[in-house]
């Protein structure tokens, strides 16, 4: 391993204070304690578009929204088996997140790939929220070890196991990476900027395809050849 600097490790509650959140820096490694709930398109549609009552006290019980469907089952006796836990890509939920953050008071949004700095500045910062990215994105078994207990599942009848709202008690669940800070800076954009500088060299000796596609031009009248 040629690693130079080891990232900082921090333990954080799923109902964190503003002071704790303000200290987080891009690239910090976070481990979480407390209650966390999963919510993705199914939950957002039901809670926001269909105005169903959210079956939890938010954010008092939890201010941590995980974009996740676990690999889990409901046993016949009503208990749960949760093996691995992995996030899903968050950019697809931008449509619902502004309203969700305002309504749920979520301070931690946990997922895959982050949002844009524009999203962070527009509605994360005003709501005092931070984005944490999962690592890898395949550290499902490590995150599964951080599940102390599955407290409840909501809306599984309506949405299915993958889209249901799972309520999880975490004990040092992680690792997660801080991907936005209290000013709305974006870790992925910072990295992308550095990588983009060298891309023209990598592309030397290649050529664009003979036949173009829409999307490579915005002019729909173009012949694409």
């Amino acid at each position: 391993m040629g690693s130079t600097a080891k990232p900082r490790e921090i333990r954080l509650s799923t109902t964190p204070t503003q002071e704790e959140l303000a200290k987080l820096k891009l690239g910090d490694i976070v481990y979480l304690d407390g209650l966390m709930y999963t919510a993705r398109e199914g939950v957002y549609k039901r809670a926001l578009d269909e105005k169903a009552n959210i079956p939890m006290e938010l954010p008092a019980e939890s201010a941590a929204n995980f974009h996740c469907s676990p690999a889990a089952r409901i046993n016949e006796d009503g208990t749960f088996e949760m093996g691995a836990v992995t996030a899903t890509a968050s950019f697809r939920f931008a449509k619902w997140l502004p309203e969700w953050l305002a309504k749920s008071g979520a301070k931690l949004v946990i997922g895959k790939g982050g949002m844009s700095s524009k999203d962070y500045k527009a509605y994360f910062v005003p709501n005092g929220a931070i984005y944490l990215s999962t690592v890898g994105y395949g550290t499902g078994a490590l995150l599964g070890r951080g599940v102390d207990n599955v407290e409840a599942i909501h809306w599984n009848e309506e949405l299915g196991l993958a889209q249901a709202m799972w309520v999880i008690r975490c004990n040092r669940m992680g690792p997660f990476i801080v991907a936005s800070d209290h000013e709305g800076n974006c870790l992925f954009e910072r990295e992308n900027e550095r990588i983009s500088k060298n891309l023209h060299k990598v592309y030397e000796g290649t050529r664009p395809a003979t036949l173009k596609r829409f999307g490579e031009t915005d002019d729909k009248s173009e012949e694409l050849i």
Binding site: G83, G140, G144
Partner: peptide, 9 residues
């Protein structure tokens, strides 16, 4: 632990 390595299987 004999658990799935990734939650998205």
């Amino acid at each position: 632990d004999r658990r799935a390595m990734c939650g998205d299987t």
